[in-house]
């Protein structure tokens, strides 16, 4: 490293001032180039987000009528809405969250409180990480193989369970991380009061980690609300209003997939409306999750 300062003055012993000056200028120049490129990269990244949002508003906002929330999907040219898809998405997301969260929390508790250093613990942690980034279409395939095909065909419950498989590892990760942040003093205090371990976990540690875990659950909800691939082979989609969990069930992402690829203008328009709704919903959940997390961070 040469000892020239950023102003280009000579600071080292016996150096040709001209050479040092040139070197310094070259270093400054490459520094500026890299800085400019980094700013450009960040601008490009932000531009993508802006471009997507602008596209969604531009093409989706115009179709955002009130019938979107009152009418079910209809054949092309009949001015349908998306209420069955919206409600279907809510139901399947609710099932996924309701089934996945408790399992995820228990696994997180196991990893943070019971498994330290054990082989099983490390295996579970690794497997949970694998699940976290497993291609979601394979989870759909799996549920089709074990639930849809052998039993009663496509159903909302199968869709919900496929989503639950995605929820579990997200909740595991945040629960474990949050429990590890709980100060030892808090646990000691609980034990000193004579509380058994499980009570200290449930009443002290989990409660203290509640914000963090809630964040994890919110992020999981945001993730599964936008998932399409695991639903294709499980809940299939439904053109009509249906609340039966044993029947095929509509969902926003699958409806968007069907409608966006169609050549009917009103369907494509509805797909953009659906896309706008789901993106705003998912981004809002993410922002809320971040706000929740902020006091801890």
């Amino acid at each position: 490293m040469s000892a020239t300062t950023s102003e280009g003055e000579m600071a080292g012993p016996k150096r040709d001032p001209q050479v040092a000056d040139m070197l310094s200028r070259r270093r400054q120049r490459s520094n500026w180039i890299v800085k400019a490129l980094c700013i450009l990269a960040t601008t490009i990244g932000l531009a993508f987000l802006a471009l997507i949002l602008v596209t969604l508003f531009w093409l989706g906002f115009g179709g955002l009528q009130w019938t979107v929330f009152t009418e079910a999907t209809k054949p092309p040219g009949s001015h349908g809405g998306l209420i069955n898809a919206i409600v279907g998405s809510l139901i399947q997301t609710a099932i996924g969250t309701a089934v996945g969260t408790p399992i995820g929390i228990m696994v997180g508790v196991y990893l943070a409180e019971y498994s330290l250093g054990t082989r099983l613990g490390n295996a579970v942690r690794f497997v949970s990480d694998v699940l976290l980034s497993a291609p979601s279409i394979l989870i759909g395939l799996f549920i089709y193989q074990v639930l849809v095909n052998p039993f009663d065909g496509f159903s909302g419950i199968a869709g919900g369970l496929a989503l639950a498989v995605i929820v579990i590892p997200i909740v595991v990760r945040t629960t474990e991380d949050m429990l590890r942040l709980i100060p030892v003093a808090l646990r000691e205090a609980a034990v000193a009061l004579g509380a058994p371990k499980w009570k200290s976990i449930v009443l002290v540690c989990l409660r203290a980690a509640l914000d963090g875990i809630a964040t994890g659950v919110l992020l999981a909800v945001a993730r599964i609300a936008g998932e399409t691939a695991p639903l294709l082979f499980t809940s299939l989609g439904n053109l009509n209003w249906s609340l039966s969990l044993a029947q095929p069930m509509s969902s926003l992402p699958v409806t968007i997939y069907q409608y966006a690829g169609s050549a009917f203008e009103d369907w494509v328009q509805l797909a953009w409306v659906g896309a706008l709704l789901i993106t705003l919903g998912v981004l809002a959940l993410n922002i809320v999750a971040r706000v929740l997390l902020r006091p801890r961070a």
Partner: peptide, 23 residues
């Protein structure tokens, strides 16, 4: 800026597909 970049990760993949196909 960090949050905005992270939000890019939250956009559902179907939206990327649609945006890609139409834009």
């Amino acid at each position: 800026v960090g949050t905005a970049i992270e939000l890019l990760a939250a956009v559902p993949s179907i939206i990327y597909g649609m945006w890609g196909f139409f834009m």
